[in-house]
Design a protein around this nucleic acid. Structure first.
Lengths: 250, 250
DNA sequence: CAAAAATCAATCATTTTCGTTCAAAGTAAA
DNA sequence: TTTACTTTGAACGAAAATGATTGATTTTTG
């Protein structure tokens, strides 16, 4: 039995039961007492456990997970709900595009890890995607500081080689021509192209402030779902009058 | 059994089981222990796995700090000296390429901010570059987790549209054909192309362990400078016999 | 409290694994 | 074909891991 296997087993046991006896570990790993002792010494040095007479115990002075500052933010919870719903739309084997933007980032922890391919222009997403071992392609181009997005002519050229099953866009920034307010022309063009390369397009809306016009305009062009928490009457109406667009309340 | 097949098999097994014994790999591939050892060495250099006594293990993203903190202080100072020297070679108005790698990252704080354009495949560099408001282009392609680099076929295509005044490469990983030991074929190809697109090439060497062969081989192909702290006699000799290469001791 | 039992750290011989070298076999280019 | 390069497997000394032993230390028991 290889060292890392033993270590993993020991830590797992300790995590479950709190304490383990050396003799039990000897039996389970089919090694000698000496070996187990050495393992425990190493793991103790690495602050993974605490040795006690006859075995080892979990150490309790452990670091907790804080960051309550923003966790309680209602807005973030809402975002996360929407993101989770959107992530569930992704099926194994899908090739998807993730637009730059904080709401979309929230999707990543909920994505099915296996067999999906992600293409993105969002630099903020990279870390989370790689941590989850998701096959990730970044489009090339100019790195825009404010939004941490890849944009520009090169980005368009880089993007147009891909095709997607689904694409997920943040709520701020569909092309003006489509109905959304868009701060940046360059980013809008990227979004426009991503949508046109995708079989289905989804918009993640973390609030209900976007106008009904937005629905109408985008509905003329794509099969898309707008995922949000609440809908007012006007919006529902707008939805019902357009057949190519689904509005989902997560 | 062909090398890429073996590598694929090894990685697959490690991904599934977490750890593999060398003897098991020998049996499965019906090759010799030596061959498997070589495979593991290569794959470890490419940051695809971690070797352990008796086999190899999957490497986890986070938990690998203790080694860094030990050697970093002196090593980092050396790195920084070299990086600063290299950064001073960049003139205002230059278009430069920064290879992925930690030594190259250290250059960024020393770069002249105004009027330069940076192209890179290093995800680690982005943050620092944007913080300094440097005009930055990222090449597109597959994002490799371990080295935080953009690689692959798409990356080559994305890269070849650029031209550089100078390019700066980390010491680990010029194409084997050039003489450097290269962990990853894909990364090597990127490096090779970047060099060929640049008027001048610089190699940042944070130690003197690379062989004299490296000097000779690269000298045959490019005008380049190798920037390092110390040189042994062999290396100096190698340098003097080649005219197209400058060796700078920072 | 004292003796017995259990656990411990330290040491050493043995086994396993490692890295390197070298020559043979296989490949690609000249 | 010859020549240069790469891949491979075997060999061997070095290094690491292992298991048994010993005597000290701690815990338990009477």
């Amino acid at each position: 039995m290889l060292t890392p296997e033993r270590h993993k087993l020991i830590l797992q046991l300790i995590k479950e039961k709190g304490v383990v006896k050396i003799q039990d570990l000897v039996d389970m790993t089919e090694t000698s007492e000496s070996t187990i002792r050495r393992d425990l010494t190493q793991l103790e040095e690495g602050k993974y456990l605490k040795r006690v007479h006859g075995g080892a115990a979990r150490l309790q002075g452990k670091l907790q997970e804080p960051s309550m500052s923003e966790k309680s933010s209602k807005n973030l919870q809402q975002k996360r709900q929407i993101a989770q719903y959107a992530a569930n739309l992704v099926e194994e084997g899908d090739s998807i595009y993730l637009d730059a933007g904080s709401t979309v980032t929230e999707m990543i922890p909920f994505l099915p890890a296996k067999e999906i391919v992600v293409v993105t222009n969002g630099l903020m997403h990279i870390q989370a995607l790689l941590e989850r071992n998701i096959k990730t392609f970044l489009i090339g181009g100019f790195a825009k500081e404010q939004t941490k997005a890849i944009i520009g002519r090169g980005a368009l050229a880089s993007l147009e080689k891909y095709r997607f099953d689904k694409c997920f866009m943040g709520v701020n920034g569909i092309h003006p021509q489509f109905g959304y307010t868009t701060p940046d022309q360059d980013e809008a063009m990227i979004k426009q192209m991503a949508i046109s390369l995708s079989r289905e397009a989804f918009v993640l809306a973390d609030d209900t402030k976007f106008s009904e016009i937005a629905f109408a305009k985008i509905a003329e062009l794509h099969t898309a779902a707008i995922i949000t928490n609440e809908l007012n009457e006007d919006q529902k109406e707008s939805y019902s009058s357009k057949t190519t667009i689904k509005v989902v309340t997560a």
